[in-house]
Simulated scan of single mutants.
Amino acid sequence: MKKEDSFENLYKKVDATSKTRFHASRRLKLHSKLSTHTVVIISLGLILISLLQAYELGNNIESKLVALVQVFSAIAVLVYSLLIERNDYSNLSEKMYSCAAKLGELKQKIYPHLGQPFERGVYDELRDEYHAILKLFETHSNSDFRADYFRARLEMPENYIINGLEWWRIKAYIAFSHVLAFSSYAIVIVALVGVLSWIGFGGGQKFS
């Protein structure tokens, strides 16, 4: 029997993959919510600007930059709508969650065999089921699971010993990955709030 051919090793792989897919599901679900909310907020911003123009409210409502902001906001809505449709975050999240749930069921099948005499036939059957689940929920639209995998490893101290500087390096990488992935939503919202504040309360007509 090869060293990697053991129920313990198979359980470890299934556990790590299950946790990775679960974290991926949560990440994609958050992307779906933030993308949708961003489109709604930008659209409301456009409506508010139109109302301010209609009633001639706001210190800088007559500025030529207002038209530029409206065009940019309309393009942003289009881009985010296309990204939502293209990435299909909601559907991918459901797939990842279903995969994690299936792998969780497989873990329960493997668990009774831990520490027991090795049975090749049972092992091959469970291993094949593991690969079948991965193929069933395979997706090429989103394959960036690195940060999700690191999070899974941190939750498996019995299998992965991570201490000291390595622990901090992994935590920093996870935090950086999330900031990089979700920062665009915050930037767009902050920029929109800033522009609306300038239109409504900014001083002067410098760019008119």
Rank of each mutant, 00 (worst) to 15 (best):
T38K: 08
V39E: 10
V39R: 13
I42H: 06
I42S: 01
I42K: 08
G45M: 00
L51M: 07
L51F: 06
L52T: 05
A54T: 03
Y55T: 13
E56I: 06
G58T: 02
N60V: 01
S63I: 00
K64M: 06
K64T: 02
L65D: 12
L65C: 10
L65G: 03
A67V: 08
L68D: 15
V69P: 13
V71H: 09
F72L: 10
S73M: 14
V77F: 00
V77N: 03
Y80L: 15
S81K: 10
L82Q: 06
L83F: 11
E85L: 04
N87Q: 12
Y89G: 03
N91Y: 13
L92I: 02
K95N: 14
M96E: 15
A101Y: 13
K102N: 13
E105L: 08
L106H: 05
Q108P: 04
Q108M: 13
K109P: 05
P112R: 07
H113Y: 12
H113S: 08
Q116E: 14
P117Q: 09
F118K: 04
E119Q: 11
V122A: 07
Y123Q: 10
D124V: 02
L126E: 14
D128Q: 11
D128A: 01
E129D: 13
H131T: 12
A132D: 10
L134P: 00
L134D: 07
K135D: 14
F137L: 11
F137Y: 15
F137R: 03
E138Y: 13
E138Q: 09
T139N: 15
H140D: 15
H140M: 08
H140L: 11
D144I: 01
F145Y: 11
F145E: 12
R151M: 10
A152K: 05
